[in-house]
């Protein structure tokens, strides 16, 4: 479309940028000056204004924040902060002991949880914190996802990954389903294994 030339020689693409950027009035370019008086350009501009209208409507439509998102974000960040000065976990290894801060463990768990969830369509991380040195994972699942089985799978895989990373210092993991999301048929959830 951008290369389509009008009888006057200008292209639809040129006019599209003019329409979207609102550059027709006030006119300070040769194209805008020409377009205001060219019947071909004026007709095309009117058509483009009409076609671009829904995009402007979307831009003007407010987006509602999901219930609880703000408090979940604040909770996540506070959870990380609280462990800034916590006693570190210790990993025995050849040549000495490696200390891993609780905050680093939490961030590590968060990264691993995101990796685990990649293989589980319809499952979303809603919170990750530590309570009494246990990693507490909160998830939301789509309707149709077997919640109990998926929670067990996440706990098992997360513990495995943490053990791979920090060995015996890997904390326990507890997974809780806190929300069920409406179905989304096009997700084509795989059969649960």
């Amino acid at each position: 479309m951008s290369g389509s030339a009008l009888p006057c020689g200008h292209t639809v693409g040129e006019l599209l940028d003019l329409v979207v950027d609102g550059g027709l009035e006030p006119s300070d370019t040769a194209l805008a000056e020409h377009a205001r008086t060219c019947e071909h350009c004026r007709a095309e501009i009117a058509a483009l204004e009409n076609r671009w209208g829904p995009v402007r409507a979307v831009a003007a439509t407010p987006v509602e924040l999901p219930d609880g998102l703000l408090s979940r974000v604040l909770g996540t960040v506070r959870g990380l902060r609280e462990h800034a000065f916590s006693e570190p976990a210790e990993v025995e290894q050849e040549g000495g002991t490696l200390q891993v801060s609780r905050r680093a463990l939490l961030l590590l768990a968060r990264g691993h949880a995101a990796d685990v969830l990649l293989d589980l369509p319809g499952v979303h991380l809603r919170g990750l914190s530590t309570v009494d040195k246990v990693i507490q994972v909160e998830i939301a699942v789509r309707y149709g996802v077997p919640a109990v089985e998926v929670a067990d799978t996440i706990a098992q895989r997360l513990v495995e990954k943490l053990r791979e990373s920090v060995g015996a210092a890997a904390p326990e993991v507890s997974v809780e389903v806190i929300d069920v999301l409406p179905p989304r048929p096009e997700l084509r959830l795989p059969p649960f294994e």
Binding site: L69, V73, T76, L80, L107, R110, A114, H124, L125
Partner: peptide, 9 residues
Amino acid sequence: EDVVQEAWV
């Protein structure tokens, strides 16, 4: 929501 959580972290 996943993206927003990740962004703030």
